[in-house]
């Protein structure tokens, strides 16, 4: 479904991606892990066309969209931004149904659709008429999630969906993401730091480090790997190949 080859991205003199190769099959759930600042968000933004890679190729569903061509595909994509990125001039329900509001459906119907999507992410219907600034960080994140999945996209990107949520709500969101891939057959790429999310969501796991995919494999193989970088990440140890600078 999505194939990245030799992706490079540099900001001024900060080489963030230095040859990322990755493949995700249709209906698969890939989780990308990696230290803070290793370029996980940048990777997703390149696939979405929000940033243009300096070198390399991005092929989605057989179409090479490295330089342009994203516009035709965007209606099949859903994206949850790391900072939720809700439109603060619009009430929550218009955020959730933003894409559908442009498709000519009646506003009254869509308001009900929004309430339904909000329930799936564990939010009360009365949240629908509030403005994003009136919500807590975790609630905003969940509204962002509802917006990402509202139009039933085929390919969904989740940038840290459970950061800022309590453990119970994190479990609900993990289940929801799993459900979207297994029941609706969507392809998902999720970025997370949370190992319980990794186990709940992933078919495949890729670890980004030093601008390349350091390790890539099945979630089951994650626990057995002897890759020192992955081991340090899983155990959360301060000593290992990944420098921690203290």
């Amino acid at each position: 479904m999505i194939t990245l080859s030799g992706l490079h991205k540099t900001f001024e003199n900060n080489a963030v991606l230095r040859g990322v190769d990755l493949h995700i099959g249709k209906g698969q759930s890939l989780v990308v892990i990696g230290g803070s600042g290793t370029g996980k968000s940048v990777l997703i933004k390149c696939i979405l066309g929000l940033m243009t890679p300096d070198a390399g190729q991005i092929v989605v569903d057989g179409q090479n969209i490295t330089q342009n061509g994203h516009a035709k595909l965007l209606h099949r994509f859903g994206m949850l931004f790391q900072g939720a990125a809700l439109f603060d001039s619009l009430p929550v329900w218009e955020n959730v149904c933003f894409r559908m509001l442009r498709s000519g459906q009646s506003r009254a119907d869509l308001r009900d659709v929004a309430a339904d999507k909000l329930r799936r992410v564990g939010l009360e219907p009365d949240v629908a008429d509030k403005f994003p600034a009136e919500l807590s960080g975790g609630m905003q994140k969940r509204v962002g999630l509802a917006r990402a999945i509202a139009a039933d996209p085929e390919i969904i990107f989740f940038d840290e969906p459970t950061t800022g949520l309590d453990p119970i709500m994190a479990g609900v969101i993990n289940d929801l993401i799993r459900e979207i891939t297994t029941e609706m057959g969507a392809t998902a790429i999720t970025i997370t730091h949370d190992m319980s999310s990794v186990h709940a969501i992933a078919d495949q796991v890729a670890m980004l480090h030093d601008g390349v995919v350091q390790w890539h494999g099945n979630v089951a193989a994650l626990a057995q790997t002897d890759d020192a970088h992955v081991r340090q990440f899983i155990t959360g140890s301060a000593t290992g190949p990944i420098p921690t600078l203290r």
């Binding site: 965007l74 790391q82 809700l86 917006r147």
Partner: peptide, 20 residues
């Protein structure tokens, strides 16, 4: 100020991903 804030908080990126 409004549009710059939208840019800084990735709302402009979000618009693009929503085909707008």
């Amino acid at each position: 100020a409004e549009i710059a804030t939208m840019k800084v908080t990735e709302q402009i990126d979000a618009l693009v991903t929503l085909s707008t």
